[in-house]
């Protein structure tokens, strides 16, 4: 029995070395690099179309997981290969999450991520609602209480962990989390997505897609 109900739309490129656990849905032509950790602990995670999720990104539907448990989980999954030989997710010792999840004990809120978002290297996302066309630059961190609109940019190493809402087209930058409104949306990374979709399968094993793309974009409610 597989632990997870992983749904990958056709055209999405999800590397086998990425660690996806729980009820995760990945939209069409989304690229997920190796060493990405997506972890639907407290509820499902839905990722829209054309997202680019780079290495070492963590997306976690955290629910009521304590900081200690989160730190333990991070530490364990950092070095552990995501899959066993049989292709199953390697069981985690630090948490009883998988059993909890499979038994359906926790069915929390869904974490929605819209379309054409870019998560650069080392992003940490716990936010439950993210719009489309956003850019999250390297090592930025979004807490659980943050909701993000469309066309926002969170700059390098900005940490947003208080209750907050980023309006459409907000730019958060600098050491003091300064804010600005921009006029245009960040450019969609279509060229980069196409290139990666061509190149990544040459060097990595992929997780098979098992869902044909839905007529409606998955990220939209």
């Amino acid at each position: 029995m597989n632990y997870d109900s992983l749904r990958i739309a056709k055209g999405a490129v999800v590397c086998a070395e990425a660690d996806l656990r729980g009820d995760v849905t990945v939209g069409a032509s989304t690229i997920i690099h190796p060493k990405v950790r997506i972890f639907a602990y407290a509820g499902p995670i839905v990722i829209g179309d054309g997202c680019l999720i780079e290495e070492q990104t963590v997306i976690i539907n955290r629910g009521d997981m304590s900081d200690e448990d989160l730190a333990k989980f991070m530490k364990e999954t950092e070095t552990r290969p995501p899959q066993t030989r049989g292709g199953r997710n390697a069981p985690l010792r630090s948490l009883q999450v998988q059993t909890n999840y499979v038994c359906g004990k926790q069915q929390g809120e869904t974490l929605h991520i819209g379309s054409y978002n870019v998560f650069e290297v080392g992003t940490h996302v716990e936010s439950l609602k993210i719009g489309s066309n956003n850019v999250f630059e390297s090592k930025c961190k979004l807490g659980q209480q943050v909701t993000v609109g469309d066309g926002c940019v969170v700059s390098v190493f900005c940490v947003l962990d208080k209750e907050d809402h980023l309006d459409n087209m907000t730019v958060v930058y600098g050491p003091g989390n300064q804010r600005r409104k921009q006029q245009d949306k960040p450019m969609p990374q279509t060229q980069q997505l196409e290139f990666l979709a061509k190149v990544l399968p040459n060097f990595h094993n992929l997780k098979k897609s098992n869902v044909s793309p839905s007529p409606e974009p998955i990220g939209k409610k």
Partner: peptide, 9 residues
């Protein structure tokens, strides 16, 4: 490239 300010703004 940091705060995405442009001359178009």
């Amino acid at each position: 490239s940091f705060c995405f300010w442009t001359t178009r703004d």
